[in-house]
Design a protein around this nucleic acid. Structure first.
Lengths: 196, 196
DNA sequence: CCTACCGATCGGTAGG
DNA sequence: CCTACCGATCGGTAGG
């Protein structure tokens, strides 16, 4: 068993992430976060500059994970269907393994300051573009039907992100089973000839 | 032009819905709502019992709309593919025409009191069951491939609900175009023979 | 990291 | 529907 050494800062971020996920950012007080670590409210400020700073750290590290785990797969020169399948699998893996941060990333980022929100919006758009690209590639190569890459990328990502809202580690389906089924489902939608 | 007569209560709910959507329930104060109607903070309480009561009204009327517009379609005895297509179209129509309430319904319902939250969870599950049912019917009849109705219903609804987060009334695609494309996309996923 | 505190704001109420 | 107010809590700071 690897022992993870958490700095105080990381402990704060983890406790905050759990609370932000459960109650939402705005409904969580700095005293709630402090209490989770058996600290006094004001003591947090020895480690963080502001409550919003903690949110920024959580949202940033979630964005980093998606980018690090999915981004490289999008660059491969493999056929679009196989490439998209890998991207879906990796995205679901982040959503399920980093569920706590992922939920905060998806739902609480609007509480960031204007500048940070804009910055994160840019990263999100670049990430979505990876999916638009691979779908567009598949349409061009004839592997996919002539669908709208923009719309189908949104449809797919909305579905995959939705998993963060209902996935349970002790549920019936493992993360691998879920990603396999979602990938099969969406690849059928893209690769099949249109009916009627 | 039909003139809509709004009661004060409805004005409050509409102003609150807009604010809850923009800032979130927890970050919206009763004074914010009052200010939007040129009232003093305390004056709201001549019309509503509590802030949470206003949220409940908004969430309830959104749930009512989904149930009223989609529910009956699920009862038809038409073939599953046509029935699901109608349900998707109707769901997207509610999401886009009642976007403000829909966003609040989808994102802010967790701020309801315990009892009301439970009640709404029940309604949501019954609603999702309509989609599971029609998909299950399609699998049984052979119109759909042998997929998991539970998973595909979640995938579809997550996607359709995601539309509430990006749809713009002045955007490139009309609500009708969107629902048409989403319906075609998902019906392909369900109705096509599996690839590889 | 604690104690003690700051001004601001919160949801809600009394009385008119 | 307003004025004036309630106790509670908010994010954050000073000084140790």
């Amino acid at each position: 068993m690897a022992v993870t050494i958490e700095t105080r800062r990381q402990q704060i971020e983890n406790a905050a992430s759990a609370l932000f996920r459960e109650r939402g950012y705005a409904a969580t007080s700095v005293r709630d976060i402090a209490q989770a670590l058996n600290l006094q409210g004001g003591s947090l400020y020895a480690h963080v500059a502001s409550k919003e700073d903690v949110l920024w750290s959580i949202v940033s590290r979630a964005a980093d994970r998606f980018q690090a785990d999915v981004g490289p797969l999008a660059q491969w020169d493999t056929p679009a269907p196989a490439r998209l399948r890998q991207m879906i699998t990796a995205h679901v893996a982040v959503v399920t393994s980093e569920q706590r941060d992922a939920v905060v990333f998806l739902h609480e980022w609007r509480f960031l300051s204007h500048d940070r929100r804009e910055q994160m919006a840019g990263r999100r758009d670049a990430y979505e573009a990876l999916f638009r690209k691979v779908i567009g590639d598949g349409v061009e190569s004839g592997d996919f039907a002539r669908i709208d890459p923009r719309m189908s990328a949104m449809a797919i990502l909305s579905s995959l992100n939705g998993i963060a809202s209902w996935y349970r580690r002790d549920g019936e389906l493992s993360a691998e089973q879920i990603s396999e089924r979602y990938a099969a489902f969406f690849l059928r939608a893209l690769a099949c000839a249109p009916t009627a």
